[in-house]
């Protein structure tokens, strides 16, 4: 036995030699798994057109990443699955009726401008899928508007109704319908119930940090409640706002993109709360019916500011800072 030991080639490595086992690829696979129920429900609801948009978006994202990496002389990294996740997240925001060229432009811009221009996965400051979405949303408003573009459907856009017919119109949409995705909007982002479960799975797995979605939804809930209490006729209730449009999708899947959010607890909470509040402010005062994607882009840009909030490193705080540490403890508990 020792003879064989003498012939073997040992691997030299650096500490730590144990690892949590979590890798970029695993995180991507978990994210795809979490998105799967929403994708399945979306396929049941929209059929082949949805499948077409999702497949095209994912393929275009992967190919764009590969082409950019070849041009930038980087190692190809399609096997880590991050491009597929971005492609799918982008497809979830597009209407099922999106024509092929629209999907293609969105996906190419998401990967090219949104991610690779910054250097690759993890270097972008704003969620890549949102960059692609925002570009086509602003440039081609008609094909991007589900109310105008999706014709063969009896579903209505709850946010559109709430914005232009007042909060009372929200009563047309029972919560169960919203949760099961019986609403008009992005093809996958409106499957709020399935996305909520998927997001919960990711948080339990530790792939995303629970503070961000919690704070995001809390922010939406608080501001929506404030408006609703001020004038129930004009403004819909908090649960309506959370489960309509892409709020849940933004909270669990968009705002949590690791490179675009702060990582300490208090900054994450503030980041989420700001995002949730912005969703409501854009929905109420903005020109767009659904404010969630834009809210996420705005807080992505604010993330470095939030990240400046940090406690004193170990043992360097001022000696009298008894109260600071108390506050910290409270923020953590």
């Amino acid at each position: 036995m020792s003879q064989s030991n003498n012939d073997i080639l040992l691997a030299i490595s650096t500490p730590p030699f144990w690892h949590c086992g979590r890798t970029i690829r695993q995180n991507s696979l978990h994210t795809l798994l979490a998105l799967a129920p929403a994708a399945a429900l979306s396929l049941i609801q929209w059929g082949v057109p949805a499948a077409r948009v999702m497949a095209l978006s994912m393929v275009a994202a992967i190919v764009t990443e590969a082409v950019c990496q070849i041009l930038m002389k980087q190692k190809l990294s399609q096997d880590n699955g991050t491009a597929a996740v971005t492609g799918l997240a982008l497809a979830f925001l597009l209407p099922a009726s999106a024509p092929w060229w629209l999907t293609l432009i969105a996906a190419v811009c998401a990967m090219g401008v949104g991610r690779m221009a910054f250097g690759g996965y993890g270097a972008n400051q704003v969620n890549a899928a949102l960059v692609g979405w925002a570009l086509v949303f602003v440039s081609f408003p008609i094909p991007m508007d589900p109310n105008a573009a999706v014709l063969h459907t009896s579903l209505a856009d709850p946010l559109f109704r709430a914005k232009f017919f007042g909060g009372a119109a929200a009563a047309d949409f029972p919560l169960a319908d919203l949760l099961l995705g019986r609403q008009l909007g992005g093809l996958g982002a409106t499957q709020t119930g399935a996305l909520f479960l998927g997001g919960l799975y990711l948080a339990l797995r530790g792939v995303i940090r629970w503070e961000i979605p919690c704070a995001f939804l809390a922010g939406t809930f608080l501001v929506a409640s404030a408006f609703h209490l001020a004038d129930p006729e004009l403004y819909a209730g908090p649960l309506f706002h959370i489960f309509s449009g892409s709020t849940v999708f933004a909270a669990f899947f968009l705002a949590t993109e690791d490179s675009c959010c702060p990582h300490r607890r208090l900054p994450m909470t503030l980041y989420g709360l700001t995002g949730g509040a912005l969703v409501m402010l854009i929905r109420v005062f903005g020109v767009y019916a659904d404010g969630a994607p834009f809210a996420v882009m705005l807080i992505n840009l604010l993330a470095p500011m939030f990240a400046l909030i940090r406690s004193h490193p170990f043992g360097t705080g001022p000696r009298k800072a008894k109260r600071t540490s108390d506050n910290e403890g409270r923020a953590r508990s």
């Binding site: 036995m1 003498n6 073997i8 040992l10 691997a11 650096t14 500490p15 730590p16 030699f17």
Partner: peptide
């Protein structure tokens, strides 16, 4: 090597052996 022999632990190519702890130790080449 003698310890591994004593314990009847046989290694494979690509294994890492380390002295110290798994988080702060150092890997040995021979």
């Amino acid at each position: 090597g003698e310890l591994l022999e004593f314990l009847h632990i046989s290694l494979q190519n690509g294994d890492t052996i380390l002295r110290g702890g798994p988080l702060r130790g150092e890997s040995l080449d021979r």
